[in-house]
């Protein structure tokens, strides 16, 4: 534990971030590990009426009610079956009305990687299923391209009903 914290501090000092990477189809995405609350297996959710289709429903996460977003549906990817191997990553976002927790359904969790600040390149305007406004940047890590997600932009408006960036 202490080592991990120390490693994080070292990494931050060196201008790098730890990222949790996960896969959706053939693509690899990354989120800041400090935003990750927990990783849990798939379990059926309670549907919410009148919610956007990619908001699957809500789950009980140790007493609080947490909405679950299907990232495949959010990115208009081919829908995949939910199996016991399907993974929910619980993340926290900063919205204009405070911290919100929510879960994203992904195909699988891959790795925790260190990404140096100067390894992150701006995303080109095409090439991914994600509109680039949700992508903080691209990083090449051991030959793989990882898309670093700006989850505040991506999910904030969905779960709060308040748009972060009115222009978007």
């Amino acid at each position: 534990m202490t080592n991990q914290v120390a490693a994080q501090i070292d990494a931050a000092a060196a201008g790098s971030n730890q990222m949790l990477t996960f896969t959706l189809g053939d693509e690899t995405y990354g989120v800041d590990i400090l935003r990750v609350q927990e990783i849990r297996g798939w379990q059926p959710v309670t549907r919410i009426p009148q919610a956007p289709s990619h908001v699957l429903g809500v789950l009980n996460l140790r007493g609080s009610i947490v909405p679950i977003v299907d990232l495949r549906m959010r990115f208009n990817l081919q829908h995949a079956e939910y199996t016991p191997l399907t993974v929910i990553i619980v993340l926290s976002v900063q919205s204009p009305i405070g911290r919100r927790d929510f879960g994203v359904v992904v195909d699988g969790v891959s790795d925790v990687i260190d990404v140096a600040a100067n390894d992150v390149k701006p995303a080109p305007e095409f090439g991914a299923h994600v509109s680039t406004e949700f992508i903080e940047g691209l990083a090449a890590v051991s030959g793989r391209m990882v898309m670093l997600l700006d989850i505040d932009q991506l999910i904030g408006a969905d779960v709060t009903g308040v748009a972060l960036n009115p222009a978007a």
Binding site: I48, P49, V58, S64, I65, V66, P67, R100, F102, V159
Partner: peptide, 13 residues
């Protein structure tokens, strides 16, 4: 429990 803690208001709920 409030839905609004992590989500938003839903009509009818």
């Amino acid at each position: 429990k409030s839905l609004e803690t992590n989500f938003r208001r839903v009509d009818g709920v």
